[in-house]
């Protein structure tokens, strides 16, 4: 892959920020909706399902882009544990972005709910009706959602650490708005 690249490709950066907004919204919508009985409940549920499916589609596109463009190399002087953490967290993020919507969809299928996206548009059921599968998936959706939020907080801390403490260009790899790739990393 293009290891000389110091930034993610423009489509990758656009997708990253778009999905960051969507996923954070989903986490807040999720915990908000299950804690209220007001009419907000219905509004939030009606956003949660189509937005979650949209994230599934975007995550698959993003995975394809990642396989195509690759990712800029991490700074050579980054301590090994941090490098490992950075790489591992990327795998977990991709797994969660794809698994969470699938679990949501499967959980509704196992509970015999129609998976309505909007109006008369609904998705097919992907699992047979089963209380035990529903329970398993419901617990998975719940615990993985909190793991997801925890991981995002760690990710934000790490990236701010790169920027504010190390200032090593990792932040700019995704945050930069410029469309050209720098030929070289600033100081290494």
């Amino acid at each position: 892959m293009t290891t000389t690249r110091t930034r993610f490709a423009v489509p990758q950066r656009i997708l990253h920020w778009l999905m960051a907004i969507c996923i954070l919204s989903m986490l807040f919508i999720g915990v908000g909706m299950v804690s209220t009985i007001t009419t907000k409940y219905l509004t939030l549920v009606q956003i949660h399902k189509p937005l979650g499916i949209a994230i599934l589609v975007l995550a698959l596109i993003r995975l394809a882009l990642r396989l195509y463009y690759g990712a800029p190399a991490l700074p050579a002087d980054l301590p090994t544990p941090m490098k490992l953490a950075a790489e591992l967290s990327q795998y977990i993020f991709y797994a969660l972005m794809i698994a969470m919507p699938l679990i949501g969809w499967a959980m509704l299928s196992a509970a015999e709910y129609p998976v309505v996206l909007f109006g008369s548009v609904h998705l097919p059921s992907i699992l047979p009706v089963s209380p035990s599968l529903h329970t398993l998936l419901w617990h998975a959706h719940y615990y993985l959602a909190f793991a997801f939020f925890g991981l995002i907080l760690m990710h934000v801390s790490a990236i701010l650490f790169h920027k504010l403490v190390r200032n090593d260009g990792v932040f700019e790899a995704m945050a930069s708005v410029s469309t050209d790739d720098q030929p070289e990393r600033p100081t290494h």
Binding site: L27, V31, V34, S35, V156, S157, L164
Partner: peptide, 27 residues
């Protein structure tokens, strides 16, 4: 700065989830 960003995000999340609102009528 990092602690503040993470702390504020966590508090907003907890508020949305109703953990800071014992009087909210939840399901």
């Amino acid at each position: 700065v990092i602690a503040a960003v993470v702390g504020i995000a966590a508090i907003c999340f907890a508020y949305t989830a109703g953990w800071l609102s014992p009087n909210r009528l939840t399901p």
